[in-house]
Design a protein around this nucleic acid. Sequence first.
DNA 1: AGCTTCACATACGGATCGTATATGAAGCTT
DNA 2: AAGCTTCATATACGATCCGTATGTGAAGCT
Lengths: 197, 197
Amino acid sequence: MAKKRSQTMEENRVKLIAAARKAFAEKGYAAASMDELTAEAGLTRGALYHNFGDKRGLLAAVVDQIDTEMASRAQAIGARAGDDWQGLLDEGAAYIEMALDPEVQRIVLLDGPAVLGDPSQWPSQSSCLQATRQTIERLIVQGALKPVDPEAAARLLNGAALNAALWIAASDQPQDVLPKAVEAFDALAAGLLKTSA
Amino acid sequence: MAKKRSQTMEENRVKLIAAARKAFAEKGYAAASMDELTAEAGLTRGALYHNFGDKRGLLAAVVDQIDTEMASRAQAIGARAGDDWQGLLDEGAAYIEMALDPEVQRIVLLDGPAVLGDPSQWPSQSSCLQATRQTIERLIVQGALKPVDPEAAARLLNGAALNAALWIAASDQPQDVLPKAVEAFDALAAGLLKTSA
DNA sequence: AGCTTCACATACGGATCGTATATGAAGCTT
DNA sequence: AAGCTTCATATACGATCCGTATGTGAAGCT
């Protein structure tokens, strides 16, 4: 056999993150038991503490993984649009839809900030946010937007999208509410334009 | 003496909520010990579980108290403005500033949603949200705003303000970032107007 | 082959929450 | 006013969980 050591270690990390992702999403961070987690992955808490330091470290790793996935998806959608402005709107809509995923909502939007603190301080640095900010910066340079602070605009837009997602998720008929949320989002975003729509 | 029973009970509730408010703000919900809490209030966990059911119930009571204070403040500020539109902007700015209070931030914005779930389901938050929604509805009737869904617009605006507050609080120089956030908020809100500013 | 390293398992201690039981005073009845 | 009842709070207990300290067996190097 002679399985390489670093290889099994990487495999175990993957297993643990996968199990944690599932447990955190289903039970929430606080209610998720490390013993159950590791047992599900065929390991013990020993592996966990060796690889991730503590429970927070494990959550950080999970958040990082999900956040990265979200960023690449949002970026792909934004890039597919004709111009930067439409890209911004599409990114926002995509973000709202992604935030409907219970996993994203529970882990990244609720437990993440509560346990790890402000998202912008995370190692993944909330890649979604940075993508939005860069798009806004480009649009400002192009002269399409008012000269607002890009960071501020990106933050508030993200916040609006986030709240929209929470609203939709708590709603009885999500598919009925989604278009209303997107419409309102587009209207707010239009406030950044120099010329009104 | 003959202290009435219901009276001492009410006093104890007040003491417990005050102690909890302090402990939750300083240590966060998860790290706050019920034993320390109650001891600080001159009581034991027995009183706590009898009055609030469990730890979550205590947090709910604390959140309700803080949230009610915020709502009345925001409403007062909004009513002081000349017209509805300015009132909406002022309410938003007031909300952002209030969210800079570490107590508000830690308890209401971070731990609250993580532990209690979607804020819009809370009995108190709905009043704050409803106030802005009603203002928006009036402005739509007046013909000042685009005919967006009032509920959606109110939710997204609140979300934007909330995220702005988190950003400012995590910043190194809050007083430097605050005006940027308010400016961006005003810009976004202007997107709801029929005619651009 | 044998020593070393190290990733992981096992064992332990401390802390915490929720419940079940005890207590003592307020409140009502007669 | 005496005694029974109610109930708000205190005390005691069990279960769970996290983080650390120590053990172990296989990979890796000489």
